[in-house]
Amino acid sequence: MKIKAIKIGKVSIPLKKPFKTALRQVNSAEDIIIKMIADSGEIGFGNAPPTAVITGDSQDSIIAAIRDTIGPKLIGMDIDNLEGIMTTIDSSMLHNSSAKAALDIAVYDLFGKRHSIPLYKLFGGYQTMITTDLTISVNAPEEMVQDSLEAVAAGYTALKLKVGTDAALDIKRVQAIRTAVGPDVKIRLDANQGWGPKEAVRTIRKFEDMGLDIELIEQPVKAHDFKGLKYVTDHVETDIMADEAAFGVYEVYQLLAMEACDLINIKLMKAGGLHNAIKIAHFAETVGIECMMGCMLESKVGITAAASLAAGKRIVAKSDLDAAVLLAEDPVVGGVSFTKNQLIIPDAPGLGITDVQGWQEIK
């Protein structure tokens, strides 16, 4: 089976509610979705949501990287030559991790279809179902309380609260939500780089002193501030997770060598795809650091790929794969299915995706 053609398209999917963080506000998911066509007629699906404030990748840059630079080098390559294909993707150009991830996911989808194996089994087959949290956008405390209560009523046992816009107000937000949802719901906080190191320590210590029982704090400081992240990790009791700082394989290696965090958030769009995400998981496993599998605001194509890796690897102990739940529509036929806070991994070959409705080709 050889790669014959790569078609680029997009879907625009409205959100149920605006998605608000310390970095941005989004009202719809604008997802680039590719179809990698093999000479056998099989189609591999891959996606890349433009998330410029995190990856630096825009819709135009993703399209250009796939169409003009990386994609042409893959035409004619045998899908069984995974090592050669991934080397070509990685070495074709610097950065552009989202474009690389889209191609990588499509290649793995074709590989799974070529060998009639679901990707979660290819990655280890550890489990067939994973539990996700639900993200609560940063808003006024009373609105976040209402959103949190609705999430718990819908069956979610872990909430990821977006904070980082105002430390004093963040304390009020978290306190109000903990009071509302009770002690049995896990609360995770994501500051999206919104605090300085000392501000983060002061704020997190207040959470601890107030007995708010926060499971983890995600990326409290700027992505480039590895020393600041380590300072926070070393001066609080709550587990600290690197997200934007843990961009790719080399950054994760540096963070682990510095003992700068307690957890690593793996995202395919940062890592450049599944093959690098696997390396990150193995790095973390080697030093005994658990991982979370995260996502961008993207369609179920990328969610299924990420969930397949999370289900395959034991070290991926937590998941934040709720993006498809936040969307008002689901154009993807096949892939993961949802039961309350559970993602059911498909047992069909590859990603188990057969079509993307409303896909508009970009020439």
Rank of each mutant, 00 (worst) to 15 (best):
G196H: 07
I187W: 10
I171R: 02
V174Q: 00
K206Q: 13
K186D: 15
A168M: 12
I171S: 00
A168Y: 09
R173L: 02
D190P: 05
R202Y: 14
R188M: 08
T165R: 12
R202S: 06
G182W: 13
A167P: 02
G182Y: 14
R188F: 01
K172D: 07
L189K: 01
G182C: 14
G194Y: 06
I187N: 04
P183Q: 11
A200Y: 05
D184H: 15
A180E: 08
G164N: 01
V181S: 08
R178Y: 00
R173S: 03
R205I: 10
L189E: 00
I171K: 06
G194R: 01
A176M: 15
I171D: 00
Q193L: 09
Q175H: 10
V185R: 00
R205G: 11
Q175V: 12
R173V: 00
K198C: 08
K206N: 03
K206L: 01
D170S: 11
A167M: 00
I177R: 02
F207C: 06
I177Y: 07
A167N: 01
L189M: 05
N192P: 12
G194W: 03
G194L: 06
A176R: 13
V201Y: 01
K198H: 12
I187A: 09
G182H: 13
L169T: 08
G182T: 11
N192W: 07
L169H: 09
G164D: 05
A167S: 04
A176F: 13
K186P: 07
R188D: 00
D166A: 12
P197A: 14
R178G: 02
T179E: 15
T165G: 05
I187Q: 10
